[in-house]
Design a protein around this nucleic acid. Structure first.
Length: 312
DNA sequence: AGCACA
């Protein structure tokens, strides 16, 4: 099973800058996945945030979970990557301490062109009951209606950034200045206050999602996020309040990242909790995967291995 | 100890 599975992230062109292939292959993932929005975010906000970006094609906000999830499609993997980096750690809303986290999506956002019911495509994550796109963009790229003269200040938008009008070079804006320097993470990395020996009986087989237990009801999500969000491979986390205790799920990009954190942070003290150290276990069900029992006897034993999409 | 989301 240790198969060298197909890479989740298609191999991008190296950041050499100018040797980029003209308009990436169509099978490259050129969609980003953005988390960290405040719960009251509007899809329009995502669109207005991204439509300035070179190569932006469409976006969609998914409100299914506790946290809104944004997806945005770009004209190429390079453009998507650049936008992803630009959004990384962007403070979206100071009031709610919302800091964005962006990753490459696993699949491309499916943009419904018309209302034609070709519903066989599978957009990232859940099948869209709620497929929304940028709306009406009949031109190859979105041309702003002219309402906005200047991008919002204090943001990632480089000065040289102008929505291209006629000739469109998706790489014009690439090789951008180090944008991360502008957007400071508000989720400061938090080092655990200390460690407590934690015996972990009854763990599950390793997978890319950790289950965090032994957390008191007072446990602060911010502290957890501070501890975990900086860990290599961190994808997302979800906190669940269960009466007088709290549990938390953390998804990582791959099983190895989860294993590392499982070992390194075992028993780490969570200050806001009143129970000392946290217990880290592998989740019974990885993020985004349903347990399949009777449904699929063929795939009985690899909890950590997502059935990577049949990319047709 | 407590395992959601799809």
């Amino acid at each position: 099973m240790a198969g060298a599975g197909p890479p989740h992230y298609a191999s991008w062109p190296p950041p050499a800058g100018h040797n980029l292939p003209p308009m990436g292959d169509m099978d490259e993932v050129r969609t980003i996945f953005v988390l960290g929005f405040p719960p009251d975010v509007k899809e329009r906000e995502l669109q207005n945030l991204l439509r300035w970006w070179p190569g932006y094609e469409a976006s969609q906000m998914n409100f299914k979970g506790e946290q809104p999830m944004g997806f945005a499609l770009f004209s190429s993997a390079a453009a998507a990557m650049a936008a992803k980096d630009a959004l990384q750690n962007l403070v979206f809303d100071h009031e709610t301490n919302s800091t964005l986290r962006a990753e490459m999506a696993k699949k491309n956002l499916y943009v419904k062109r018309g209302v034609t019911g070709m519903g066989t495509e599978t957009p990232p994550f859940d099948q869209s009951k709620r497929l929304r796109t940028a709306g009406d963009f009949s031109t190859s790229h979105y041309a702003p209606p002219g309402a906005f003269a200047a991008p919002p200040p204090n943001s990632w938008v480089p000065q040289s950034f102008m929505p291209p009008a006629g000739s469109y070079d998706p790489y014009a804006g690439y090789g951008l200045p180090p944008l991360q320097a502008v957007a400071q993470p508000i989720v400061a990395p938090v080092a655990p206050a200390g460690y407590v020996p934690m015996q972990n009986t009854k763990d599950n087989p390793p997978c890319n999602t950790l289950f965090v237990g032994n957390l008191g009801e007072s446990t602060s999500e911010a502290e957890l996020r501070g501890i975990f969000s900086g860990q290599p491979g961190f994808r997302q986390m979800k906190v669940l309040r269960q009466g007088r205790s709290t549990v938390c799920f953390i998804e990582f990009a791959d099983v190895n990242s989860a294993i590392a954190v499982h070992n390194n942070l075992q028993g780490a003290i969570v200050t806001s909790s009143d129970r000392g150290g946290m217990r880290l276990q592998y989740s019974k069900n990885p993020f985004g995967r349903k347990k399949e029992f009777m449904n699929n006897h063929q795939d009985g034993g690899a909890p950590g291995v997502p059935t990577s999409g049949t990319n047709s």
